[in-house]
Design a protein around this nucleic acid. Structure first.
Lengths: 109, 109
DNA sequence: CTAAATATATAGACTATCTATGGATAGATC
DNA sequence: GATCTATCCATAGATAGTCTATATATTTAG
């Protein structure tokens, strides 16, 4: 049985941005948070996570700064920018529209 | 403003298989059906549709035969196989699990 | 006669995911 | 002191699934 993707493609940026509305967080913590909240259904692989964070940085939707974690480790903390918050809003509403549309196609009647 | 995808990536096969549970249909008709049922939200481009149908054929989830349409045009009609029906069931439940998981991450609380 | 709609298909670009790899440090255990 | 596990970052390369663009052909409408 071929292993399917751990994510629904196209939703990762939205999930990351949403996670950062709660508090600034480092990459590893973002991945953990998504995994935990999704009850282990969504797993963000490192090879997806870090490129995604680079994309978000490049587009100005998040900013980053190096800090120490509570456990005294160096980590790069990401913060949502106002543009990122706006982008999140658009992605959320677009996502809802899509899901509703898919729902209509999947209905039996 | 960069144009977003007309589909939620990863859902096309499921949408096609679902469409074929209603009746055998040709490619063009499948695309039309998805567009209509989704109320114009989901648009299946030709460059996505035909490769997808090739994939489904290759995996034995659909079979195809050339026929005439009602309007006397040649078209390739696709029919869902038993394996395709099974596959659809798996994709549907997997999709629901994913959507529920995303919903949990997107919740505010 | 021409344009739009119906119908199939491929090539090539692009994007986002994955696997695999590499590195580094902290804390716990042996 | 060694080693293991968890924490943390990041990139390269493979793969997959979209998209745009193109090609072909027929039917219907204006």
């Amino acid at each position: 049985m071929p292993k399917k993707s751990e994510l629904l493609p196209g939703t990762l940026d939205m999930l990351i941005l949403k996670t950062l509305t709660r508090a600034p967080l480092h990459g590893y913590g973002i991945a953990q948070s998504i995994k935990r909240l999704s009850e282990d259904v969504l797993t963000v692989e490192e090879g997806s996570l870090y490129p995604a964070l680079q994309r978000l940085l490049l587009q100005g939707w998040v900013k980053a700064e190096w800090k120490k974690t509570e456990t005294n480790r160096r980590a790069r903390y990401y913060t949502l920018t106002p543009e990122g918050r706006k982008q999140l809003g658009e992605e959320l509403s677009q996502f809802e529209v899509m899901i509703a549309a898919i729902g209509r196609v999947l209905q039996d009647a």
